[in-house]
Amino acid sequence: MNAHTQEVTRLPSLAGGGNVMAIVPQTFEETFRVAKAVYLGGLAPSALIGKLEGDAAISAVTVAIMSGAELGLKPMVALRSFTVINGKPALYGDGLINVVRQSGKVAYLRTGCETRDGQMVGWCEAKRNDTDEDKRVEFSQEDAIRAGLWQTEAVITKWNKWDKKNEQKPNDSPWWRFPQRMLAWRAAGYCLRELFGDVLGGIRDEFEAREIADAEDMRDITPRQPPAPPMPPAPPSPTVEDANVVDVTAEEQPAEEQIDTAAFFEELEEALSGAMDEATVEEIWTALDPEGTFDGDDLNLDIAHKIKARRLAQINPVNGG
């Protein structure tokens, strides 16, 4: 028997069978270690971490794992089920259904979408097996239209902040691509949060959370135009002597340049979203110069400062909060 054969025979035999068990962290430190491994391994969902990097991205993964643990989800299942919107965890539509099903409190849970009188209607019906409560909720195409969610155009106009112009782009909204699924998931979100509120613990579905975040952003940064200055008093009627005098000192003043405040704020927020530290935030702030742009316009300057403060808070929650 040669040396190679002897070496092979010393290897332990492989054992088969056994149950596969998930690694479930028990402390914050263990959770952070798992989140770091997920991030460094490139397994963190891009929808979860967005443009975050380093410890900020690891923290986002940690929050998702912790939020999932509170609902009984294993770490990797939580990462597939959760997203973070404006710093708040939210469940995808299928994640919401998954959490409720795993609770063991479901007698039945059904979702779907049907057509009535030419209109699509999404629905969800469920029943608890511990209290025998049941519920059916519908969310129709008309509801989506009234809420400003419905999409009917294959091509939409989007602002190109780099070229400073509007461009025609394919509509990538899920309400355009998957209207039936969106109607059913919206119905499920309302139905399950009402019937299984104890199971979900106040967690919203992704779509409702995103709409709330968009509404909050619009309220925070919608440009507020300052009131128009009072009109100057009318000049006195000229006398006969004045009519013979030519005013050679008055010059025609050019019209004041109008600032597209909405486009400016969009550009500022987009630029700051790529900043990962306070120094970069200050560089972008200096380059775009909101102080000079809104010199004398305290209302819109205050909005610009709020956008900056919000980004700083996202970068450093302890100091920014």
Rank of each mutant, 00 (worst) to 15 (best):
N300C: 10
F178S: 02
W175C: 00
Q102C: 02
P317L: 00
M1K: 07
T62F: 06
V318Q: 10
V199D: 10
E29F: 04
G104C: 10
F207G: 01
P174V: 09
G16A: 14
N171G: 02
T249G: 06
T152E: 15
I284P: 01
T111R: 10
L14K: 06
P238H: 01
I259E: 04
P45G: 06
G42A: 04
G112N: 03
A243K: 15
G292A: 04
G122Q: 05
S237P: 13
Q258R: 08
F178R: 10
Q6L: 15
R80V: 05
I307R: 13
R136K: 14
A279T: 12
Y108G: 00
A90W: 05
T280L: 09
S237D: 13
E30V: 00
T152D: 15
V100C: 00
A90K: 09
T152G: 15
A215S: 11
V84T: 15
E252K: 11
A228S: 13
K127W: 09
K88N: 14
E153G: 00
E208N: 05
L79Y: 08
A78F: 15
G68A: 03
P232W: 11
A188S: 14
L200H: 02
A243F: 10
N86Y: 04
E241Y: 00
D198W: 03
P223T: 03
P229D: 03
D94N: 10
G93H: 05
Y108S: 01
E291P: 06
T249W: 11
R80K: 13
L91V: 11
A47D: 09
Y39N: 08
A37W: 07
M76S: 02
I97N: 02
